[in-house]
Design a protein around this nucleic acid. Structure first.
Lengths: 123, 123
DNA sequence: GTCGTTGCAAAGCGTTTGCAGCCTA
DNA sequence: TAGGCTGCAAACGCTTTGCAACGAC
């Protein structure tokens, strides 16, 4: 019933903290294997789901790309997605207001903004 | 070499025109089978790719959801994604400028904005 | 000791590819 | 008639699930 602390779960949280940017399951696996070499991909998927449900990490939804994950507790922000290396980078807080473009009848609850282009390394 | 006109391709374009909203591959298959009953899903995928490359249809990228497609030739716009019925609706043109939130070193090429909430029917 | 967790392998599922026959130009 | 296009089935890549052993509490 209760969530237990395992080396694997610590390694996954450590990977996300160390990376400092949203990671996909495969990226998490590579990072976290520094701490737990025999870590399996299924364990990554299972822990990621549990950590999202328990609110410790957050899902980063990207248009046209699979989900990434980042540590929870950050301010509202969006991401920059590099079309060359597929890396995702955090942007500073968002101050946009989209209530003006919401047609009448629709009830706006949240929004996602993703910028595309080249990151500094790929430029 | 040259793209040929087939019943299947016409059926797919017809489906997108008839629907009036972005459709996924499976949705396209259902709509287009009204015109070509034995249409296969592989043909949908192949034609969708060709039509995107030839500029006749456009990919609609949605965070956390698989790609949809719409007829090309529309003005730059974004979409509203209903969390209840999963329907996607077109919004009026976008006049946002995100160059201000792009960190130095990054080269901004395009952006995606998706609004979430409830559509008029689900409200 | 209990039972949540793990690694491995198999199963799922949406998308792509190989192939022989079909059909457009 | 050439060669792009089609339907079918197999292959693929990513994610989930089944299972027996493991280990946190």
């Amino acid at each position: 019933m209760t969530q237990r602390n395992t080396r694997q779960r610590e390694a996954i949280l450590g990977a996300l903290g160390q990376a400092g940017r949203p990671l996909g399951p495969q990226e998490i696996l590579v990072f976290a294997r520094q701490f737990v070499p025999r870590l399996g991909i299924a364990t990554v998927y299972r822990n990621v789901r549990n950590l999202v449900e328990s609110g410790q990490i957050r899902v980063v939804l990207l248009p046209g790309s699979s989900d990434r994950y980042e540590l929870a507790g950050k301010h509202h922000h969006h991401h920059f997605h590099c079309r060359e290396c597929d890396g995702v980078f955090e942007l500073d807080g968002c101050d946009e207001d989209f209530s003006g473009v919401t047609p009448s009848g629709f009830s706006l609850e949240r929004h996602e903004v993703t910028l595309y282009g080249l990151c500094p390394v790929c430029s």
